[in-house]
């Protein structure tokens, strides 16, 4: 790890000031991806701005029938929240499936989505639920937020403060983990909402995407059987030593069926 200056500000204003004063400053949330990156000397920030001291970034609350979750809320807090369990159990299940217990104890929602790892779970949850990302500057719809592999719509000095999740009629997440890393080889979040059926896929492509073929089939009939005749194209899907594009395409459909079945 290269050396850096460490800051633990108390307010968002201080964060903004630190980011503008230090061009190579980086934000530190749970650190469960970022610290390993630093250890491998793959990043060389001049300053690390630790967000854990900012009270307004924490917490889970009900808002407009849905949920608003602060950016530094950990995966364990989401998975263990009675409120999440009651309003949006699929999201609690998704959080429970991230990493391992120790990673969940430190890893955060804001950190995960800001990093936008193509195999991360939360992006599927946000896109599947049509969530809104709230930042220090604005609100961004989930589909506009995730722009590419490890890329988001965030500007240099912009930070995620919270995510608002509307409550769906039904939802579930089904994940096929990489046997080694336990990241998603394919993760499918399915939701039936007032605005229609949404199927968001992570792990399979460079960035989370909506599987429109599956959505169309489910819009007519929200049941696993509705997907039987549908096939997911393998074009553009990831291909690596763990899974071919063809296998991933197949798994997208299988996981979608399982998610629909679980959503009930």
């Amino acid at each position: 790890m290269y050396n850096f200056t460490y800051h633990r500000p108390r307010t968002l204003a201080e964060v903004a000031q630190l980011l503008s004063a230090n061009e190579d400053a980086k934000l530190l949330a749970g650190g469960q991806t970022f610290i390993p990156t630093l250890k491998q000397r793959l990043a060389q920030p001049s300053d690390l701005v630790d967000l854990s001291g900012i009270a307004e970034l924490k917490g889970i609350r009900e808002e407009g029938g849905g949920l608003t979750i602060g950016a530094t809320t950990t995966h364990a807090e989401v998975a263990g929240s009675e409120l999440v369990r009651r309003l949006l159990p699929a999201l609690a299940d998704l959080a429970e499936s991230i990493g391992d217990p120790q990673v969940r104890n430190l890893g955060t929602l804001g950190g995960s989505i800001s990093n936008n790892d193509p195999a991360a779970d939360y992006p599927a949850g946000l896109v599947g639920l049509g969530a809104t990302v709230r930042t220090s500057k604005r609100e961004i719809g989930a589909e506009d937020f995730f722009t590419g592999m490890f890329e988001t719509a965030l500007e240099e000095d912009e930070i995620v403060t919270a995510v608002h999740f509307p409550k769906p009629e039904k939802a579930a997440y089904a994940k096929f983990p990489n046997p080694a890393s336990r990241y998603a080889i394919v993760g499918v979040f399915v939701a039936r909402t007032g605005g229609g059926v949404r199927v968001a896929v992570t792990g399979a492509a460079p960035c989370v995407f909506r599987a429109t073929e599956l959505e169309n089939a489910l819009a007519a009939d929200f049941s696993p059987a509705a997907l039987d005749g549908v096939s997911v194209p393998a074009d553009g899907l990831n291909e690596d030593i763990h899974a071919s594009a063809e296998y991933r395409a197949h798994l997208v459909k299988v996981m979608a069926k399982r998610a629909v079945a679980a959503a009930g």
């Binding site: 530190l28 650190g31 390993p36 630790d50 391992d100 120790q102 430190l106």
Partner: peptide, 24 residues
């Protein structure tokens, strides 16, 4: 951050001490 040989408790929660800075 996968083997878990470094797990300790910080404020009552288990964490991987190799994936946390001392200053945190």
């Amino acid at each position: 951050s996968q083997c878990g040989c470094c797990v300790v408790h910080v404020d009552g929660r288990s964490v991987k001490a190799c994936t946390m800075l001392a200053v945190q």
